[in-house]
Write a protein that binds this DNA or RNA. Structure first.
Lengths: 150, 150
DNA sequence: CTAATTATCTACTAATTTTATAGACAATAA
DNA sequence: TTATTGTCTATAAAATTAGTAGATAATTAG
């Protein structure tokens, strides 16, 4: 499940990725443009900054910007930074494995088996989609850039 | 995310799928063998019964059994019955679509775009894996049936 | 230096969801 | 008729999510 935190974070990072090179955006602006509670976004952007995806600057004219090219930021990294492991269940996680307390034998557990497949399927998407991919798709779908307008 | 409810439900239905043809199992037994709180499992099996996957019989000698062959029950159906839609976010759900309140334009939303892909990836696994598949995998991984024992 | 601006940090609260539990009721078999 | 087993309603504890309040720190402009 993607919580509001993850959703807001993805929207915000796409917003930042669409800025001109060198430009920054302030939290208040990103929040307003994307209908995100400002205080909540404060905490979210801080997480993404601490994860190395954003850089920030205080004071007048300050704000946030990507710390690296949008094509170098995977959607999976954003989600993991904000929501933790992507596996549907801890025993199927690669980065944060933990056995269930109720589980007799992890090797024969049918739930773990299918949930590991699900984990891999999710990773196959989020770790092969970058923030730049999202920007390009958004642009491609905006009315003025639709196919029939070419 | 798979909650305990979904995990317990999957374990229980696999348990029932491993019974002899015509045999039933009582909730108390399924609960004990799988380390599931009995009262919680009561509610779970009821959900699966109401979804048409299980049949039940009251009284002495009663219990639960599959309502159809294990190969006709998809993991996705079990999860949906117990946890609702599989999409990570409502706007990416096919069965229970709902727009986000904060979303300006659903057609260009980058979050919805990638989460739709994730939804399809998850469905690709859970809707192509049956309860019988889980049973077969469990059996194949049990020590006495391991490859080296052939 | 001062004042305005903007990010950072800590602490807290409210709402929602998950994870159950209690106990009465209904059906069935011996 | 009694013991057994599923069914149903109501409730509560625990955990997670979603936010808010308010002080602090850094930077810029004047």
């Amino acid at each position: 499940m993607l919580t509001n935190k993850g959703k807001y974070g993805l929207k915000a990072i796409v917003h930042l990725a669409r800025l001109e090179a060198g430009e920054t955006a302030q939290v208040a602006n990103v929040a307003q443009r994307n209908n995100i509670p400002k205080k909540f976004l404060d905490a979210i952007l801080l997480d993404l900054r601490n994860a190395g995806m954003l850089r920030s600057k205080k004071g007048p004219g300050g704000g946030y910007a990507l710390a690296k090219p949008a094509r170098a930021i995977k959607v999976g990294a954003v989600i993991r930074a904000l929501e933790g492991p992507i596996a549907p269940i801890a025993c199927a996680s690669r980065s944060a494995f933990r056995a269930c307390e109720d589980c007799g034998d992890i090797d024969t557990c049918p739930v773990r088996s299918v949930m590991s497949d699900v984990r891999d399927a999710i990773a196959g998407i989020v770790d092969n989609t970058t923030v730049d991919d999202l920007v390009q798709r958004s642009i491609a779908r905006e009315p003025l850039h639709a196919d029939y307008a070419i």
